[in-house]
Write a protein that binds this DNA or RNA. Structure first.
Length: 173
DNA sequence: ACCCCGATCGTA
DNA sequence: ACGATCGGGGTT
């Protein structure tokens, strides 16, 4: 597919990737939707990042090349989906918090746990290369929505950073 | 081995 | 605003 996002797209500063992912189309098997909300988590200087205290089995994929999935299990019952960003060796990722599903049904999945629950994304989908994978990837769209930046949700430290990006509701006329 | 807490969600 | 929930990551 020609308009699939390449490794070069993800291999950039995480905040830039998080902002530019808004409006892009995520495809997961038979399902597809528009990304509406993201958060940036950036390595060693970000206390909210899973990789803040170095490499562990769980966060290992964040240290690898950009364009891979990072899926983790949280609160004993939810999964969260991220896309790895930046140069290899530089642990960072974008959390996908919102998806406007358009196929095969129309449904706004707001919240990372709900998103993974509905798409049935689990740790089996961790460390997949989205630039190579058959049915799991992100593609270009003609949308470039307006968005706002806010503090990230549900974290203790790192609330000073405005690294959550949410598509603004379209004003009607 | 095991303890503690979380990148949540739904209800109040 | 807050409590339910509980697996497993990270440290002992």
């Amino acid at each position: 597919m020609a308009d699939r996002l390449s490794r070069d797209f993800f291999n950039r500063p995480t905040v830039t990737v998080a902002q530019e992912l808004l409006g892009k189309i995520m495809v997961f098997g038979p399902m597809a939707g528009v990304i509406t909300e993201t958060e940036a988590y950036i390595g060693q200087d970000d206390p909210a990042c899973h990789a803040f205290r170095g490499k562990t089995p769980r966060n290992a994929v964040m240290f690898g090349p950009a364009g891979y999935s990072y899926v983790y299990f949280i609160y004993g019952m939810y999964h969260c989906l991220n896309f790895v960003t930046e140069e290899e060796g530089q642990p960072a990722a974008v959390l996908i918090r919102g998806l406007m599903l358009i196929q095969p049904e129309q449904l706004h999945l707001n919240g990372p746990g709900k998103l993974c629950r509905h798409l049935k994304i689990t740790r089996e989908h961790n460390a997949l290369d989205l630039t190579e994978n058959e049915g799991f990837y992100v593609k270009e769209s003609s949308l470039s929505p307006l968005y706002e930046a806010t503090p990230r949700i549900g974290i203790r430290r790192g609330q000073d950073k405005l690294w959550r990006f949410v598509v603004k509701k379209k004003m009607h006329s």
